[in-house]
Design a binder for these strands. Structure first.
Lengths: 140, 140
DNA sequence: CGTTTCATTTACGTCAACGTAAGCTTATCT
DNA sequence: AGATAAGCTTACGTTGACGTAAATGAAACG
């Protein structure tokens, strides 16, 4: 029996292949992330079933990778997103770590802005050279 | 003879050790970057002398690394900053590549903003939990 | 002049992040 | 039932980005 909503749209769980298609990664990568405790798929016999939580985490993992974080850094960062009913001291600690992470991200944004500005300036120079070349060609 | 300006402030060239101190990298790293054609120090006999150009490039290299670019990607990016007196078609090509790079950077900026927003939201949740815990403790 | 100091080359080692191949179950198709 | 597909485990291989050690040379110091 075919169930478009349950099977395709937003299934409770997804097989490893569905995950690979959805996130453009290989099975090896997902198993590797599980072995590193970044993902925690449940099991149906032998087979892995990835939950919404796994998908949310994978999204953050891939985002973190694009920013050049190591998997270990990402793992620690993911812990900040997994706050159960913890002790007050633990929650405060989490908040402190999150604050540091946030400052790190904001620092990166500044650098990124600088990089963008530099790139724009450089492109301006190249455009100047281009118009110079055009002027030279026109007068020859 | 000691010359503070020539030796320390902004010397024409710097030794490998001066570079290491200035940029917090190891000699191995600088030699490695040279072998990968990211830097082109001149030679005084055997010894490498790093020019202003090398320093500018190293700055860009380290920045690129913080954004998770591979050295090969960085090398290609650096080529955009080395525009000699080239042909018009070559300059246009450079500009096109730079444009793509720029769009990539701007895309990353958006993702980074999203990450920062997510982190802030998450911290808000943790703060809520903290105040809940405080309220519970106060009423017990 | 001997000895640290700084630098060089050559080469093997390492660690993260997967790739890839072999061999084995389990489910599905015909 | 036999074959095909999807998934699993185990384990060795690979690539990028350096680390680290050994042997050598030139320069500066006391």
């Amino acid at each position: 029996m075919y169930d478009a909503i349950g099977d395709l749209m937003d299934p409770e769980t997804m097989t490893i292949r569905q995950m690979c298609d959805a996130f453009d990664v290989t099975p090896r990568t997902l198993r590797f992330y599980e072995s590193k405790e970044l993902l925690f798929p449940i099991r149906d016999g032998q087979k892995r079933l990835f939950t919404r939580r796994d998908r949310a985490r994978l999204k953050l993992i891939l985002r973190g990778k694009r920013f050049g974080f190591s998997l270990e850094e990402i793992r620690q960062l993911l812990e900040l997103y997994h706050v159960g009913d913890q002790q007050e001291t633990q929650l405060k600690r989490t908040l402190e770590v999150a604050q540091l992470r946030l400052e790190d991200l904001e620092q990166r944004r500044e650098e990124l802005d600088a990089a963008i500005a530099d790139m724009r300036a450089q492109m301006g120079l190249v455009r100047e050279m281009l118009s110079d070349v055009a002027a030279r060609d026109a007068s020859s």
